[in-house]
């Protein structure tokens, strides 16, 4: 049985879970985006190098 009724502690519990999940999701999104961007930048340079030779 799941209990979602936090009674008088609702504000504290939900804010805690909200901040945590948002922070985690933000960290993951930021890390993945930076990774994809750098991968694309390296590939572009490699392509340019190949085109130049």
């Amino acid at each position: 049985m799941l209990d979602f009724d936090m009674g008088k502690y609702g504000v504290y519990v939900w804010t805690s879970y909200g901040v945590t999940l948002l922070g985690l999701a933000g960290l993951i999104a930021w890390s993945l985006r930076a990774h994809a961007k750098r991968k694309a930048a390296v590939k572009a340079l490699q392509d340019a190098a190949e085109a130049g030779t």
Partner: peptide
């Protein structure tokens, strides 16, 4: 692991750019 790979890519990028 994703972030370490990002760092590796950043270093590779700088090395490639210097070479070019």
């Amino acid at each position: 692991l994703v972030r370490i790979d990002s760092e590796i890519l950043a270093r590779k990028y700088r090395a490639l750019r210097a070479k070019l």
